[in-house]
Write a protein that binds this DNA or RNA. Structure first.
Lengths: 234, 234
DNA sequence: TAGTGGTCTAGACCACCCG
DNA sequence: GGGTGGTCTAGACCACTAT
């Protein structure tokens, strides 16, 4: 009386396997049946069963190793997927009106801490840009960014008056690697003023470093207005 | 003089396609060649080409629609993947010694705000647990958690002396849905004391709500020690 | 060394949806 | 209507690794 006979698609198989994991038919840390066995049970093929199991492994439910078999993982370390959108899209996507404002842009010598973060060697010129993003005319995000001129020479011609540096970079510079960090920071005088809050307020901050091959492109700090939550469902 | 002839694997094809996207051979917003065309170029099969393109679509580089074809996306809204590990593993994985300490656990009536967050109806009993996680004997994380007793009746027998509530729940209760939020909070007297910092310090905080089907299981707030950064590479 | 997953081939049918 | 992607079948060879 196998529960599944008509089921053939990889989605069906995924669901059945997931149910068996949840109901402890295949308990955590145990080895579940091999692909060949499941092919037999579901009257399917290895291609299809493999796709189901591979996706479940990608999603963090299973661990697969040749010869060792497929192990059910203890903790579903389900990957949180944050799609870090362009700020404009994040605001308009919420049904609000987006407004951008450039605060300032200037070429400077890269400070010590930046050279360390970006692994820069020798003296380097960077373009330091500060700007604001508004949602329905309320402060939404203060963005501070350093762009490595050696990597993006054409950036010196950009004005960033109509378009934020992120949108400009996305259009102009391909990126191969991204390092993303989230943290809590403290509003200083400047941040408090721009984000329309009081000094000392905790702010949710994202920092993103992007690379083109081995060349650092930019480091961006995005300080969100007080009370911001970054939320996702898995 | 096609650059690729020996290449056959889906990984090779992924890399080639990615390069062409980055070098603007197939510019953003354009329609790239169909699977059949690529099968011809790479002397491959649809199964293989399809896997390459499907994965690139999953990773946010492409948008695929029947009949319309495969479109190169403007902004690589590459998904940030955070594997939210068990705190114990996060600490030991960093090479530090992990220590757990229960602060207190008591059954209470669910307060208003909690009922709203969990979509609870009517009076509900919840187990309120507070505990600390240490890394090399330094405060690492203060955890505050509310567990819905109606959903997890056996929780009243747990002591949480040797094991944190998260680890206990992972072993005992399957979960179908997770809502995860990140935010910045302000250290109050209690938090400052437990996390060995001063009142008013900004703290990185994660909030996780888990569900079993439609039944809320738990809401957890994890306050990290000052200076904590959550980092990922994409 | 043998079992298990990783991947590819060759072909097929179908669902969707743009023109 | 017809082109495109979505998926399945049936079979094969190979890479890795536990035993």
């Amino acid at each position: 009386m196998t529960e599944a006979k008509i089921n053939k698609s990889y989605r069906d198989i995924k669901q059945i396997v997931l149910d068996r994991i949840r109901t402890r038919v295949w308990p955590p840390d145990s080895i579940m049946p091999s692909e060949v066995a499941l092919v037999e049970e579901f009257s399917s093929t290895r291609t299809t069963v493999n796709r189901a199991l591979r996706e479940l492994a990608d999603e963090g439910f299973l661990e697969r190793r040749r010869k060792a078999g497929t192990r059910v993982l203890e903790a579903p370390l389900r990957h949180a997927k944050f799609s870090i959108p362009v700020t404009r899209d994040e605001v308009t996507g919420a049904g609000a009106t987006y407004r951008y404002a450039l605060i300032g842009a200037e070429v400077i010598e890269a400070p010590e801490w930046l050279m360390a973060r970006l692994n820069l060697k020798g003296a380097q010129q960077v373009l330091h840009v500060r700007c604001m993003h508004y949602s329905d005319n309320a402060a939404f995000q203060f963005e501070e960014r350093w762009i490595v001129i050696a990597t993006v020479p054409s950036v010196v011609e950009a004005t960033f008056v109509d378009m934020g540096p992120n949108e400009w970079l996305i259009r102009e510079v391909p990126v191969t690697d991204i390092e993303l960090s989230f943290m809590a920071t403290c509003a200083d005088d400047s941040l408090a003023a721009f984000l329309e809050t009081s000094v000392g307020t905790p702010l949710f901050t994202a920092e993103r470093i992007t690379w083109l091959q081995d060349a650092p492109v930019t480091l961006a700090r995005m300080h969100f207005a007080a009370g911001y939550r970054m939320t996702t469902r898995l």
